[in-house]
Design a protein around this nucleic acid. Structure first.
Length: 655
RNA sequence: GCUGCUGUAGCUCAGUGGUAGAGCGCGUCAUUGGUAAUGACGAGGUCGGGAGUUCAAUCCUCCCCAGCAGCACCA
């Protein structure tokens, strides 16, 4: 029963009527020739569709032009098809698999004995541009499942066959053709390959597992970026350059903050300047937490394997733990490390929580003791895969600003609120705003009753609601022992970093038999909240370096001020100034080298020192300093006392 | 861990089948200068490690190690 006509509502609210079966293209043509020419797709009730698709019912529609934001996704998807055709043309025998769009571009995974190399890019891009220039129309066909399987089998496309076989029986097998080349694809696509344009660039090759499964075949992936015009492409490439300039590994070397070496891969050698950032940050967090009602503890680095068996880590995570035989080593030259096979083992702690439970368990706890908030700047070791290691961001030895809150069930809400407030305040102090919060809910494999999970998830949600915080729900992403909140910060160039986390845990207190005496005189299980704000201090410093491009706020800057002389006549006075700054607890350097002031200014500017006190004969005579702040072209003259007080003030931590 | 690429002076990088070069940095000397590089001279390297091919290997081959990009992983 088809209606005689359908009503389509345009974005401006106007309505038009058409015969059922009218295509998007025909609609565009009926509105304006120019619109039809510029159009690449149509949005029907919010869903982007092919222009050739007949419309059979009333709908809200919007014609998508190539200039529209919605077109980016289409350009990238179509470009992936163009890439696939180019590759198959140039490298016969290469199988296609999948080629989705991603942020800023797309990739395509190919199966080929010999992987591609960036040297192939020029030829592939050239071929792609030919396909674009040819303006081949994209046409959509729905195939019979069996025909599709046989066709792809005949072509030797075993991966596509697997994809088709895995499609639910209810789904149409859709094929998109561009000239003779075709691919299994759910669409939608633009009108022709010409709509892709030429503002794309192949970026890199990489291996990727078929269907993301490390036990399956490694494919060769080509990453590319694609945009609507060359300006957008250029802006993106510039942005990548900017991110490279901020790389904390590069800046860490330039600013002499830390280094890594083979003998301790994945662990950081902190140099004096890098460690001063650490100390400032740690001191700040300590003040914040102490005022927030936490008490600080320190727990053992090495613990017996029996302990980790009890906590459950031995069975589950042992392959990522550093295990140490509890046997006296053999000291004979050239002999075996151990004379006998070790029978007992210790392990470096991979996390702090089980140790904190031990502290909780000492003596008898009353409900009056709760909540008990145990904090530790806990140094943990995890044997991460080689390929996972990355500067300060992913290491094998790291220090968490960790804490565990032991509380009653009825305290969950208030503790969550307290934590969220603290986290927000800390991020604001550290220069991050617009935090995103994710509520990660129960996974399929989990411990604890549904009742308990209901209560826990509701507790977290209520806390967020009460604070009026925006959040997203990530279903199934919670830990097996409880739901969690993940806080994601956005840095100065728009990248997102997951840092703070709050996890409810009903499992560990049970496993390790922690309890408290309730008001009723009976034993009860406390709820345990695992939480961290910075996460790993190593990683957070990496994020800070990249966020500030090394130009850290004065309170964190490794060197807060350099006193630099213009002539050696001012050396004595410069030393006075330097000592006066030191006496105020500031991190200062004295530069009385036999160099010109231009040279010194340049060097300390590149070292990202926020303040320079420049002194010459005039300043020495007048007891003043010429202040140059990082990034400014001019200087300010102040009496020494004033300058000291002002700098001390500027160097104050935010809390 | 998997795939690919890379490894030369403290740093950034060039280079060659006949035992190595630049700039910066470092040292010495001269220069005492007003806000992003003063000049001259000099000292630095088992060319990631091991094995092989060769009259000869930093260069070619193989193995190992590490780094980088991505994948997988991240309690």
């Amino acid at each position: 029963m088809t209606a005689d006509q359908i009503t389509l509502t345009l974005p401006d609210g106007a309505t038009r009527t058409y015969a059922p079966g009218t295509t998007g293209m025909q609609v565009a043509e009926s509105i304006a020739k120019s619109l039809a020419k510029a159009s690449v797709a149509i949005k029907i009730d919010g869903e982007i569709c092919d222009l050739s698709l007949p419309i059979n019912k009333d709908a809200r529609i919007a014609i998508i032009r190539r200039d529209d934001d919605d077109a980016l996704e289409l350009i990238r998807h179509d470009a992936a098809h163009v890439l696939a055709e180019a590759v198959q043309t140039l490298f016969p025998g290469t199988q296609v698999t999948i080629g989705p769009t991603i942020e800023n571009g797309f990739y395509y995974d190919f199966a080929r004995d010999e992987p591609f190399s960036p040297e192939d890019f020029a030829a592939i891009e050239k071929k792609m541009k030919e396909i674009v220039a040819a303006g081949k129309p994209f046409t959509r066909e729905v195939w019979d499942r069996q025909k599709a399987i046989e066709t792809f089998k005949a072509k030797g496309e075993t991966f596509k066959v697997e994809l088709i076989q895995d499609l639910p029986g209810t789904e149409d097998i859709k094929i998109y053709k561009q000239g003779d080349w075709f691919d299994l694809c759910r669409g939608p696509h633009m009108k022709t390959t010409a709509d892709v344009g030429t503002s794309f660039k192949l970026m890199k090759v990489a291996g990727a597992y078929w269907r993301g499964d490390s036990s399956r075949q490694m494919l060769t992936r080509i990453y590319a970026t694609a945009w609507r015009n060359d300006k957008e492409l250029q802006d993106y490439l510039t942005q990548i350059e900017e991110a490279e300039k901020r790389d904390h590994r590069k800046i860490g070397k330039e600013m002499d903050l830390f280094h890594l070496q083979d003998e301790a891969q994945g662990s950081i050698f902190w140099h004096p300047k890098g460690y001063s950032i650490w100390l400032a940050l740690e001191a700040y967090m300590r003040r914040r937490q102490t005022d927030g009602g936490y008490v600080e503890v320190k727990t053992p680095q090495l613990m017996d394997s029996r302990f980790w068996e009890a906590s459950g880590h031995w069975g589950k995570y042992r392959d990522n733990m550093f295990v140490v035989p509890d046997v006296v080593p053999n000291t004979e030259d050239g002999g075996k490390v151990f004379k006998e096979e070790p029978k007992h083992f210790m392990a470096l702690k991979p996390m702090n929580c089980p140790a904190h439970v031990q502290i909780f368990k000492q003596g008898i706890r009353s409900y009056r003791d709760l909540p008990l908030r145990l904090a530790e700047f806990g140094c943990c070791h995890r044997n991460e895969a080689h390929g996972a290691l990355h500067g300060l961001m992913r290491v094998r030895q790291f220090t968490q600003d960790d804490a565990h809150i032991f509380c009653r069930e009825d305290q969950i809400l208030s503790e969550c609120i307290k934590f969220c407030k603290l986290t927000e305040a800390v991020y604001k102090d550290l220069g991050f705003e617009g935090t995103i919060v994710k509520l990660e809910t129960r996974p399929e494999k989990r411990v604890g009753s549904d009742d308990l999970w209901d209560k826990a998830e509701a507790g977290l949600m209520d806390a967020l609601k009460e604070l009026g915080m925006k959040y997203e729900i990530a279903p199934g992403d919670g830990a097996f022992y409880g739901p969690k909140l993940a806080f994601i910060v956005r840095d100065a160039i728009g990248r997102e970093w997951g840092c703070a986390t709050l996890q409810l845990d009903f499992n560990l207190p049970e496993r390790l038999d922690a309890n408290y005496i309730g008001e009723d005189g009976g034993k009860h299980r406390p709820v345990m909240l695992h939480r961290a704000i910075l996460g790993s201090i190593e990683r957070f410093i990496g994020i800070l370096i990249e966020n500030y491009a090394g130009k850290l706020p004065t309170w964190l800057a490794p060197v807060q001020c350099v006193v630099a002389t213009i002539t050696s006549e001012a050396d004595t006075y410069a030393k006075e100034v330097f000592e006066a700054l030191q006496a105020r607890g500031l991190r200062v350097e004295l530069d009385v080298r036999n160099e010109k002031i231009n040279y010194k200014v340049r060097e300390h500017s590149l070292a990202k020192v926020p303040y320079m006190f420049v002194v010459g004969a005039r300043e020495a005579a007048e007891k003043t300093v010429a202040i140059r702040t990082l990034g400014s072209q001019d200087q300010q003259f102040k009496p020494l006392d004033q300058a000291l007080a002002d700098l001390a003030n500027a160097a104050n931590p935010p809390y």
